[in-house]
Each structure stands twice: as C-alpha cells, then as structure tokens.
Write a protein that binds this DNA or RNA. Structure first.
Lengths: 117, 117
DNA sequence: TGCGCATATGCAATGACTGGCATATGATAG
DNA sequence: CTATCATATGCCAGTCATTGCATATGCGCA
C-alpha cells in the first residue's frame, strides 16, 4: 500500500532538517549533546541575550528534540532525540573531549556548575 | 588552536541542513539517491512546473550536492554528496527496492528511459 | 508578604525564502 | 537557418522566519 510516500511525508521530515538549519540552534544542540546545561550557561557561552536563547530553546522543546528539567532556580535543557544526535555526529563530527571541556566550565558564568570552579 | 569552533562553523553546517529542510528538495534528493534522473522525469513525478524543478535543482547544484550531465537533449541530475546520502538514509530510512521501482518508470513520462517501457 | 533572580512570553520590524510565470538559452533535426 | 524540444534564468509579490526588545511569570529566600 505504501509504495509511494504520501505528499507530506517529505514535509514532516523537512521540518526536522529545518530545525538544524539554523546556526544558533545548531550550536545550542552541539552544546547540549555533550551535557545538559541551564539557560544562563548557554547565554554566557553563546553571547546572546537571554530572551533570544529561550526562544530558540522553545522551538527545540516544542519539536520534542530537547527536554527541560527544573533544578532549584535554574532550568536545565538536555538533548533527548537520538536521531538528532546521530545527525549532529554525522555533520559536526564526533564529540571531542577537549572541545567538550572548553564549553562545560566558563570563567564568568553565573550558573551553579561553573561557580563551583 | 581549534578548541572552540569559529563563529561561522555552525553557519556553514546549518546551510547544509537548510538545503534538506525543504519538502520539494528533500523529495528530489530522495528520488536522485536511487538513480540519476532527467529534469522532465522529475517534472512528471513531482507534478510541478518545469521552471520550479529547475530552480530547486540549481540550489542543490550550486551547493555541490548534485551534479548535472547532458545526455543528448536531456540533462540528468545525480546525487554526488555521500554525506547527504547518509543524512537521507538516517531520516528517510534506507532505500526500499519496491519504492525505487515505483519511481523509476512512469507511465506518462516523456523521458527516454520511461519511453522504452 | 515582598523582593530578586532565572526564565518565559508577546509583539513588531526587518529580512529571507517561496513559488509562480514570462522568457532566455542551447542543442538538435529538418 | 529555422523550428522545436528540453532546460535554464530573471523577476516579482506573497509569506514565513528571524531577531530584538519590553514585559510577564514563577520560584526561592529574607
């Protein structure tokens, strides 16, 4: 029966690619695939205003790609979509430990994890 | 040196995702990953006017994802980017032979390959 | 209860992409 | 050399995404 894909078969999957077709979202996902981070950490790391970060996170959250989890006053976002992880791995390359460290702890970041260092 | 990716590192790779973030381009690539096809075949298969098809093919060609090859009066386009092939495989799934046959030969297609059947 | 911090939302202007069409090119056959 | 067929290009208006900013929410703590 399903010999030919339905018309919006491609529309659905194009949406997934569109999500990643945005430099800032792509960078956010590249950070989150290493470890979950709070909004203020992303704000410091990406050097963009907080509402802007939250907006992109909403897009990713509503697409079911990331999940948010409250921890005290902060909200931590995590990448939960394994397919997106595979796509990132394919295009951005595998996660390098050195690069991961460079993004995990930031000097002037107010978030709890960075403050402990 | 390259501990932190350059700012447009993500811009470059987002462009690649943007290419696939379009239903018609995605469908074209899904056809071309099976076998090279001429423009008129795609025109028949996708049911869109020829200038529209050519426009999308140009976008893909200028991005280096597909290549064109003249054969007599027709121009055949082929998918030449292995990374894109991997991305398609990951999101659209592997190529099913049945589905491939359904797209290869079309009843009312003026292209040479279809006319022979 | 009220204050402050972290995050979220709503809105508006700009800019980019989309898709439709008229027309140009280029090769081939007669 | 002309006509025709396949494909390519240029241009335009409509639509959608982007991003910047003002402000709202909500939670913890004094």
């Amino acid at each position: 029966m399903t010999t030919t894909p339905s018309p919006d078969f491609y529309t659905v999957h194009a949406e997934r690619f569109k999500l990643l077709g945005h430099p800032m979202r792509l960078q956010i996902l590249d950070v989150l695939r290493r470890s979950p981070e709070c909004v203020c950490h992303l704000e410091t790391l990406l050097g963009k205003p907080q509402p802007y970060i939250s907006q992109q996170l909403r897009v990713l959250r509503e697409a079911g790609v990331v999940a948010d989890r409250k921890e005290g006053p902060n909200v931590y976002y995590a990448l939960i979509d394994p397919q997106v992880a595979s796509l990132l791995n394919l295009v951005l390359g595998p996660i390098l430990p050195s690069r991961a460290n460079a993004q995990n702890i930031l000097p002037d970041c107010p978030c709890p994890r960075c403050a402990r260092a």
